Amino acid sequence: MPFLTIAHSTRYRYRQPVAFGEHRIMVRPRESYDQRLIEARLDITPEPVELRWLHDVFGNSVAVARFDGRARELRFDSVVRMEHSPMAEGSVEIEAYARAFPFTYASEDMPDLLRSIERQHVDPQRVVDAWARGFVSDHRPTDTLGMLADMTATIRRDFTYAPRYEQGTQTPIETLRKRQGTCRDYAVLMMEAARALGFAARFVSGYVYSPSRGEGRVGGGNTHAWVRIFLPGSGWVEFDPTNGIVGNSGLIRVAVARDPMQAVPLSGSWSGFPGSDAGMTVDIHVHLDEDSAAVPATAITAIRPPSRETCRHVDPHRL
């Protein structure tokens, strides 16, 4: 049961003082039986005139900051110490009626799962449907967990991981066509494929770390994205197609949502003269307290010249 320290710093720089609008920050990990926060601190420079916390419609912790005055730099520093309880694929228990696919969710669960089953992307040629159906056996009962694990492993094995620093995601059809993408692209593809088969699936934003020196993880040094799928008997189970992980080993949940745009780690606005934006730097370090090894961290700078005097800046799922 490892103890982790997560340091997440986002820094916006400007060539001359600008004013800041309201900012929403989602960097505080969700507390649960497998994630226990010991300490959480959020420092913002310049200091906001108001900082309040709320739970959004999905139960994610959101900080809302309001500012007064102007500055040439805006910085958010989050430091969290927590206890994590990894669950491996072998720990996933599924009710007898749902162990073989297809199955129908219980009537008492269905009303609350429907929005997570609905498709979010248009697929007129049923490209995603056909790809998803390829994991279903035509000749024998299809093991539910085995099928989803196979889908997870296939994306990890057959697709090329390609970092992209612009915000937003590819459509699932684009990802299938290109056979490459970022962690958020893979998460959206698997989420839509699972929904095509009738599963309830949600998008997850958080952090990834290597549980041991021998286990490499893609996506360290930045926020990470994966999928949760509802399986009767175990509830919401993690699937990370970027790393081929089933279960939450090495995965720290921060935000869970129906759509990626509902789980953006940091968003807000600024106003000033065009050309003031001097770029953004994101640094994330995940340190295993019981081990001196730390996940390699990456500092990324993104420079996006604004086209208007009032612009939005967003810290998206970077990889």
Rank of each mutant, 00 (worst) to 15 (best):
F199A: 04
E95I: 14
F159D: 02
R41S: 10
G219M: 01
V314I: 13
S212T: 14
P46K: 04
R258Q: 11
R66P: 10
G272E: 02
R164P: 00
C311Y: 14
Y186L: 13
R195C: 05
D129A: 14
D291W: 09
V80S: 09
D123P: 09
L176T: 03
T144S: 04
R70P: 07
T160G: 10
S61L: 07
R126C: 10
G279S: 05
T298C: 00
T298K: 07
T5M: 06
L266H: 02
Q180S: 12
N222S: 15
E73I: 10
P124F: 03
S32M: 08
A187T: 00
P241D: 08
H317V: 15
V80P: 04
G233F: 02
R253I: 10
A65T: 01
L114V: 15
D283K: 10
D112E: 15
A225D: 09
E31I: 12
E215Y: 15
F101Q: 00
E108M: 12
G69L: 09
I252Q: 04
T10S: 14
V218I: 11
R202C: 06
L288I: 13
L54S: 12
I303R: 09
R115S: 12
N248E: 11
Q35N: 05
G168E: 14
A201M: 09
Y186I: 11
I252C: 02
V27Q: 07
S91D: 15
A255K: 04
A196W: 05
S116I: 01
P305K: 01
V57E: 11
A225Y: 10
Q16V: 05
T175M: 00
I252W: 07
G268M: 12
S9W: 09
F58N: 05
P211A: 00
E83T: 13
G221S: 03
D240T: 03
E95M: 10
V136G: 01
V254S: 00
N60M: 03
R157K: 12
I229R: 07
G90A: 09
S276M: 02
A201H: 04
A63T: 01
M261C: 10
V57C: 06
T242I: 07
V64M: 03
H313G: 09
H317K: 12
V256N: 04
R81I: 04
S116A: 11
W236A: 04
A225C: 10
Y207P: 05
A293S: 06
S212C: 13
V136S: 10
T171D: 02
Y161M: 01
G214D: 14
R30G: 02
R24P: 09
V49I: 07
L176S: 01
D150C: 05
H285M: 05
A130K: 11
T142N: 02
D129C: 03
R258S: 08
W226M: 08
G275S: 00
R81N: 11
I173T: 12
L319A: 06
V136H: 03
C183M: 08
W236F: 12
I300T: 06
R24V: 02
S269K: 09
S249F: 09
L113F: 03
T310H: 10
F199L: 08
Y209P: 00
